[in-house]
Design a protein around this nucleic acid. Sequence first.
DNA 1: CGGCTTGTTGAATTAAATCAACATTCGTGG
DNA 2: CCACGAATGTTGATTTAATTCAACAAGCCG
Lengths: 238, 238
Amino acid sequence: MHCEDCPIRYRAVCAQCEGDELATLEQMKFYRSYQAGQPIIWEGDRMDFVASVVTGVATLTHTLEDGRTQMVGLLLPSDFLGRPGRDQAAYNATATTDVVLCCFRRKPFDQMMRQTPHVAHRLLEMTLDELDAAREWMLLLGRKTAREKIASFIAIIARRQAALHKRRPGGRMQLDLPLTREAMADYLGLTIETVSRQITALRRDGIIEMVGKREVTLPDYDRLVEESGDDSDGGTLS
Amino acid sequence: MHCEDCPIRYRAVCAQCEGDELATLEQMKFYRSYQAGQPIIWEGDRMDFVASVVTGVATLTHTLEDGRTQMVGLLLPSDFLGRPGRDQAAYNATATTDVVLCCFRRKPFDQMMRQTPHVAHRLLEMTLDELDAAREWMLLLGRKTAREKIASFIAIIARRQAALHKRRPGGRMQLDLPLTREAMADYLGLTIETVSRQITALRRDGIIEMVGKREVTLPDYDRLVEESGDDSDGGTLS
DNA sequence: CGGCTTGTTGAATTAAATCAACATTCGTGG
DNA sequence: CCACGAATGTTGATTTAATTCAACAAGCCG
């Protein structure tokens, strides 16, 4: 595939590159595919590439020795995987749907980071955004109830899927949960049982409707946001 | 104060700057001081500067409408405050000890980010480190018990204070908690009562010793780390 | 079809929160 | 300088939200 036709051309780490820079990237890139459920890399493994997620969803997880697992990153198309200047993976990365990565070998990529401004600049921008997201996530993990966590998670997915279609979230929406109950539990710092129960409760209360285990319909996006705790006054602006 | 004499000269955002670059920064910098407990900036406020913490400790916190608060950043000397390219503060920043900031007006700083590589490069490095720290923090918030959270927090402070004195943490150590019980609770996603009880429990179990409410002595650093959950097999390498 | 994975639901347990009382420290003004 | 009141911290009793343990249902694949 050529960069010009790439679905993440103007959102990924390469977004600001043109001409020569893009050509250099194009030369060093290669694609890798992973099936849903497959590991991409294990914590501590040597990692000789960095990559952009082109399609699909991947997760980063941290695990304590006794098996307790916390998701620390949810990578959607255009998100960046790996850290320039570090050759050991710090987290487990797993494909939770079929995933295609656009990979760059670390050596030439690191060199490019040093020599040309646009890749480094875009990566800084993306990293700052990710840090903001991590801080929202910390608020969720530390202070929200199970119900608020589930509502927040669904709202986050709804927002991202709306953004993908260049829409504002709002009103009636339909969306697909890209994670299993277990992955949701790891995202939210809950058990799968609690995730299941809270989804049932939101369904019972008419906040969400479900077809199967993955397809969600929101009768009213704002109603969901009210449940997420971010907006406990109901969002009245007056 | 001149940059050459600055205690954070080789760790802050200016670390890689020399000659002209440093002179430019020196010209645009100004200092601000805050007393312990004073707010530095409120979420949503216009923020016309970015800054490095020179001395003291500041915190970033997020608050839900109903008052639940989560700390999302703990800024020690050399840490960076503010986001280039954004003029609204995203979090509350508070001085938890007396603090001195080295401030840069945003306009010229942003311009410098675009024109010279070293500031942008160093800021990327620091932001990536902060993202790593945020992810460790997420694991703590999502999956650790109250006791593990307290032990982890004390271990983090011990490590940072060791690093400040260019030592490896280990053996018998002494340290100062730079936060009140309330701030610790907000850091760890707990209540102040639980923080107090777990500190008492660690003291009772001989993991820590205390003089007053802030001075901590660790008879054995490794023993504390075992309690932190990061190392549930006791750290045996054999 | 049968076995495995994923998800749901119920009952019992528990870790941490909440509610409450009290102790200690700190800061300020008389 | 001391006394008083506010802020900060501790401890105990009780409640509760979420986990754990357990059984079962549904979906999926060879």
